[in-house]
Amino acid sequence: MNVTKLVETLGLDVVSGPFEREIAGVYVGDLLSNVMAKAERDNLWITIQGHQNVVAVASLTEVAAVIVVEDFELEEVAIERAQERQVNILRTPLTAYELVKKLINLGI
């Protein structure tokens, strides 16, 4: 599945993007150093973090998209940086657990 299709299917808010990326797998985490070590290219990264450091980590790990759950706020500078770097940032009021259940049902 690609990011655009995921946005349509789950009704996610698009904060930055959608830039065309195929999705392969999911990583959930808020500790950025751990995400840097564990997230893989093309993963969806689920977090509550909205700091611009998230965009830097997403850019480094080449994840397909960041999904900010529980409607956590994103810093304005983070949104600007994500748009500049073509990093997909999506948002949902769902919890990480609720979102992961939906992703599993979608076969991701």
Partner: peptide
């Protein structure tokens, strides 16, 4: 403290 500013030459992100 800007993660997109770095003195590194190997990558353009410094965290």
């Amino acid at each position: 403290t800007d993660p997109f500013f770095t003195s590194r030459t190997t990558r353009d992100v410094g965290l």
